[in-house]
Structures are given as structure tokens and as C-alpha cells.
Amino acid sequence: MIEYPEIDRYASLDSPMHRFDPRAKIIAFLFLIFSIVIIPELKIVIIGLFFAIFLLILSRIPLSFVLGHLKWVALFVLSLYVMLAFTFPGKEIAKFYFLSITAEGLYTGSLITLRAFSAVILIFPMIGTMRFDTMIKALDKLKVPNILVQMLMFTYRYIFVFMDEFQRIGTAMRSRGFKLRTTLYALRTIGKAMGMLFVRSYERAERVYRAMHSRGYTGNPKTLVEFEIRRRDYILAVSIIGFAVSLHIISFFLP
């Protein structure tokens, strides 16, 4: 069985974050994420990180699920951290041969790392608490350009189909004795298989387009949704946005 990249695996749980109106949720969280990633002050970012973790716990999404995804982010961000620590100019605090770690480097590295973690953690209570198709519809309702919405929609629908297809190609290759090694032959074969996948996708796209055409596609599909925004949603959205704004006010007055 393949593991699908299902960010919305826990969308059917129940929590204040799950009950939050999708449109209000998207706006409030995006606002919060953008405010945290532009904070210049490490202490304030730490407050932001704690708030992100608080919202995550509120959403009841299992921590193991989140950590599983975070590890890839960590791999990327931590390498950046190491690089900054060694290369940023400033006061030297340690030295290995010709490489030196600077205090400014550590500070900037921590700042960027923690900002990134806060942002990624916030993605889970935002996107992980509703079904992906609900999010697409919410984006549509929020007047995100229709072409982007359609791209998201088709990506979401067909990523699973293509994954299955590539899986089938892989199985067919393995069952005829193909082993994945780092030889030129193996790489070339994988390349050809990827090429086949592109060809198949292209052909499928044509068939899908015909099916769409057959049902009156005019380039601007609409969907029917029932979103209902209540007072609770307003309060929640305003308090999240308020928190984001206050982070900046504090950092402004900080000496």
C-alpha cells in the first residue's frame, strides 16, 4: 500500500479548530503566520512558537503525525542554521580550525529556525482540521483567483491517481527483476519510467478535458457550498489576529 500525502487525515476529529469556519480560519491563520515570520525579535518569536503549539494542541491532531512531517522541515531548516552559525559575520564565540561560530550567526539562525517551525506548526491546525476539498472551496469563496483554485483542485484530485500509476509502473519493473541501485542503468530506467508517467499524464489530461467538455465546462467551474459564519468564528478570528498584532506591538516597544 502506498502512503498518500494526506495532510487532512485528521479532518474528521472534533475540536475548536475543526469547528472554526474555514474562511475565517484561513484568514486568521495566514495573518498569524505572516506576522510571526517577520518578527525581528527572538524572544517574541518564542512566544509565537508557544502560541502555535497551543493552537496545535487545541486542534487535537496527534503529535506523532505532526512530528512525522516536521522532520523533513527540520532537515532543511537545521542545515540552514548550521550554515548561518558559521558564516554570519560578528563576534566570535568558538572556533574550529578555520571555521568560527559567531553570536550574531547563532541569533539569526535561531530566529529563522524558530520562525520556520512556528509557521509549519501553524499549518496543521489550519489545513489539517478541514478536508482538503473544503479548503479549496473556502479559497474559492475568499475570491482567490479561479485559475489557482482549479489548479489546486485538479492537483488534489489527480495526485493520487498519478501516485497509483507510478506505483504500478514500479511494481511492473520490480516484478521483472529491476533493482533500484545507483548505477547509470538504473537511473536511466527510472528516467524512462518518469517519462512514461509524463506521457500518460498528458494523455489522461486530454481525456479528462474531453469529459469536462462533455459536461459543459466553460473554464470557470463553480461549486456549491454551505459555509456559515457565526459569532464564535468572529471572536476566534479576531483574537488570533489580535494576538498576532500584539506580538508586533510588544516587539516595537521592547528595548
Binding site: 482538503f132 476539498d133 479549496i136 483542485m153 485538479f154 488534489y156 484530485r157 489527480y158 491517481v161 489522461r204 481525456r207 479528462v208 474531453r210 469529459a211 469536462m212 462533455s214 459536461r215 459543459g216 465546462y217 466553460t218 467551474p221 463553480k222 461549486t223 456549491l224
Partner: peptide
């Protein structure tokens, strides 16, 4: 004239079954 294509993965292109069934009528 409604055409049902052979591969259902070509035919069902919307995120949910409801959206897919609503697609045609909305376009009409």
C-alpha cells in the same frame, strides 16, 4: 447527449462526488 467514458478516473475530476455530480447541472 451524455457520454460516460471508460475510465472513471477521467470522468470524476472534482474533489468530491457531490461536486462532480453538481458540475454538469451548474454548467447548464
Amino acid at each position: 447527449v451524455g457520454i460516460v467514458f471508460q475510465d472513471p478516473d477521467d470522468q470524476l475530476f472534482m474533489p468530491t462526488i457531490f461536486d462532480d455530480l453538481a458540475f454538469g447541472p451548474i454548467n447548464l
